[in-house]
Structures are given as C-alpha cells and as structure tokens.
Design a protein around this nucleic acid. Structure first.
Lengths: 140, 140
DNA sequence: CAGTATCCTCGAGGATACTG
DNA sequence: CAGTATCCTCGAGGATACTG
C-alpha cells in the first residue's frame, strides 16, 4: 500500500484522475475543475503518464489538443475513488456537487463497493471484516 | 472526495491508520512500522483524533500508555486501504511484507472489494462500471 | 488552448534534544 | 515508552509571464 501511495503521489493526482473518469480529459478542463495550478497539473499529468496510469492522446495537431485517458491500470484506481467518495458521502457533511457517480453499465443503476468473500460467495458487512498483517513465509 | 482527501491528510495518515487496523496501536509501534518521524506521527495522530477517525485510549497511567483505536468512521476507511492494497498488489511489483489482509471473520477467508449493483443484486465487473458526474450537467 | 519558465514564499518534515 | 520543543533545510506550489 505504501508503494501504491507513492505511485499515486498525492491528492491532486487522485482529483485529476477522477476528472479523466468523468471525461474531462483536456488540460484546461482539468485545471478548471480541480482548481489546481497549471504548473501542478502539468507536473502531475507527467507523473501519471510516466506511471502508466494515464496516456496522452493527441487528437488534434492544429491546434494542439490532447486527451489524458486512463489506462487499465488507471481505471482500476476507480475503486479507490469509489471508496473515498463513499466514505466522504457518509461521514462528511459535504456538498455533492463534484461527486462522481459509478453506475452499472447494463442497468444504469448506481453501484456501491462491497467486501466479497469468494469462499462464502456473499458480500460481507464491514463489521464482519477483520484486518491483520498478512503472514508470509519470510516472516518478520 | 476532495473533502475526504483533505480530512485524511496525506499518505502518512493512511499508513498510520493501517497500523491501527493491524492492532499496532501504540505510539512506538506506529513509529517503528511506518518509518515516519515521531514528530510526524504525533502530528498525524492529533489530526486523526481530531477528525474523529481515531480515539486515544489510555490503558495504563503508570507508566503512561495509550492505544489509538479506529472509530467507526475510521474503520470504514478500511475500504480505501483495501482498494489501495489490492491495486498495489496487482499493478506494482512490490514485496508484500507489510500488506494487510482483510478476512471474513466468520470463515477466515480473505475478502476482496467488488462493485455491487443493488438493482441486479450481483457483483459487477470493473469494465461494466461507468463513472460520470453525479450532477446532471449533460456530461460534456 | 496547452503548456513551460522563473521567481519566491512558506510550511512540512528530518535531526536532535528534552520532559514526564 | 510517549511524546513535545527547536532549529533548519529543501522542495512543493502560488503568482506571473512567456511560447507554440
């Protein structure tokens, strides 16, 4: 997890990534919607492209226009965004202006994150989930 | 989500929180296992307690000993930790020394995060999930 | 629009030393 | 052990101006 956090960088990266999920994939859109400085967006975008989380696609040469599109690796950070959004919605008295909705493509309904136990083949309530160090053969 | 990120603070907070999930709830344990400076841990702990994510429990007066225990609000950040860990495991070639395992209390098996559609009453594959702005601003 | 180049400030966090 | 107090450095990011 520490490495995941290092790879993502910081909050700006996640905010930028969310914009690309929305379909806000152009530089100016991202700057406008995240409220970050252009220099910051520029730096994060580079970092995210470098990490293989986004790809830069040039869709117009004259004038120069790029889209920053999530890769598979980037798209799978959607779970992190979902978890964060769900938590914020539940625990923070925020306005939901900028919230992202994740919907089931087939039926159009909102999906939620849930813990799933492959053994019992059921979703598991949070209070039935225990966290602990993963035991490896290499030990401590 | 922006507010959630603000409330959490930064990567250190999440790393500290994970330790408390483990059961590493004492100051020195946290310092040792996160590798953060004592000043940093002290600051983050204060911030997390203040945000209602952790509570400080004194379990010994002489000598002074405290446990930092996740509240319900804090425990529910487990989903964020799970999402981050799962992503790191899949996409980063890391060593899993410090990984946290989340298990189904009833059967002891590992649980995974999944998107769940209440409408269809099924878990939904990632590629069947679409993200979009919640407020109907017509998308573009 | 889509950035890069500079300058400058300010605060986070490392190191170290101290207290209860 | 469980922190707090200081000092100091260094780099992130705001402001502003520039290029293609």
């Amino acid at each position: 997890m520490a490495q995941a956090l290092a790879e993502i960088g910081d909050a700006w990266s996640l905010l930028i990534l969310r914009e690309t999920f929305y379909g806000r994939q152009r530089f100016s859109d991202i700057v406008e919607h995240t409220g970050a400085q252009k220099t910051v967006v520029s730096a994060r975008l580079k970092q995210l492209v470098n990490a293989g989380i986004l790809v830069r696609e040039t869709y117009s040469e004259f004038p120069t226009r790029h889209n920053y599109v999530p890769t598979q690796k980037g798209a799978e950070l959607g779970a992190v965004v979902m978890a964060l959004t769900a938590w914020g919605t539940k625990w923070l008295d925020n306005d939901h202006q900028d919230d992202i909705a994740f919907t089931h493509h087939e039926c159009g309904h909102d999906v939620a994150l849930a813990a799933y136990c492959p053994n019992c083949d059921t979703t598991v309530q949070a209070d039935q989930v225990r966290g602990g160090p993963r035991r490896t053969t290499t030990g401590r």
